[in-house]
Simulated assay, not measured.
Amino acid sequence: MNQLVAGLLEIGAIAHDDATVKAALEGLADRFEFSGYAYTKLLPGEFCVISNLHPDWLKRKRKFDLDRRNPVLRRAQQSRRAFVWSSQEENLSEEDQSFFGCAAKFEIRSGITIPIAISNGAISALSFVSPKPVLTAQEEIDPIAASSAVGQLHARIEQLKVAPSIQEPFYLTPKEGTYTRWLSLGKTVEDTADIEHVKYNTVRIALAEARRRYDLCNNTQLVALAIRRGLV
């Protein structure tokens, strides 16, 4: 497995565009007899996956991830270190069995996941998946080296702005968009209410609804997300 980590380090060093990153990850998965890969980033208000797995599975995975019903991602968030997983593990809850039952329809039964901590207490996780019921590793994976390799890959993906295979939809209503745009220009909620000739609570409630929809803590996060998505 440490050869897999070495391959990840090479990708972080040589990848120079969107296509190179995806092709290199697919080639690495194939080299070690995995059926595919999935790189997942889950931040408040931002979910994206870069993967060569079946699009229908990625849509279902998105639902499991956002509802916090993906046992692999849940373990990644708790452990923050590389681990091997399998659908044959003992004492799986009914919810976990449901996840693995759905994954099995797409020939996903085991794999290895390497999570890393990123900003705002969130994680990114790279998984290589297999149709085998149990993944047998010939050698233990070095968790420190693995985290370092995925950290470099994460930085490269962010630098190159690699297009996600699937991304959480994001929208603002016309009022939410207008109020958020004023905030992005440095106006306060009070200023925005005065400019738009509405009550303070009208603006406050609209912004609160937008934050609630995407699990955001404050208006700064809302403005940042709206800017990243090109809505303001």
Rank of each mutant, 00 (worst) to 15 (best):
S110N: 14
S110A: 14
G111P: 09
I112F: 05
I112N: 05
I112K: 03
T113W: 05
T113H: 06
I114C: 11
I114K: 02
I114A: 07
I116M: 06
A117K: 09
I118A: 06
I118R: 05
S119M: 02
S119I: 00
S119F: 03
N120K: 12
A122C: 14
A122M: 04
I123G: 11
S124E: 15
L126F: 02
L126D: 05
S127Q: 03
S127C: 06
S127F: 00
F128W: 10
V129T: 09
V129H: 07
S130W: 02
S130N: 14
P131A: 14
P131S: 14
K132E: 15
P133K: 03
P133M: 05
P133A: 05
V134I: 15
V134N: 06
L135Q: 08
T136I: 11
T136P: 00
A137L: 14
A137H: 00
Q138P: 04
E139W: 03
E139P: 08
E140G: 12
E140N: 13
I141G: 08
I141H: 04
D142M: 06
D142F: 03
D142G: 07
P143Y: 01
P143T: 00
A145E: 15
A145G: 09
A145Q: 12
A146N: 10
A146Q: 09
S147C: 04
S148F: 13
S148L: 15
S148I: 10
S148M: 13
A149R: 01
A149K: 01
A149C: 09
A149V: 04
V150C: 11
V150P: 15
G151L: 03
Q152M: 15
L153V: 10
L153R: 02
L153H: 09
H154S: 13
H154N: 15
H154E: 15
H154M: 02
A155C: 11
A155G: 09
A155E: 11
A155Y: 06
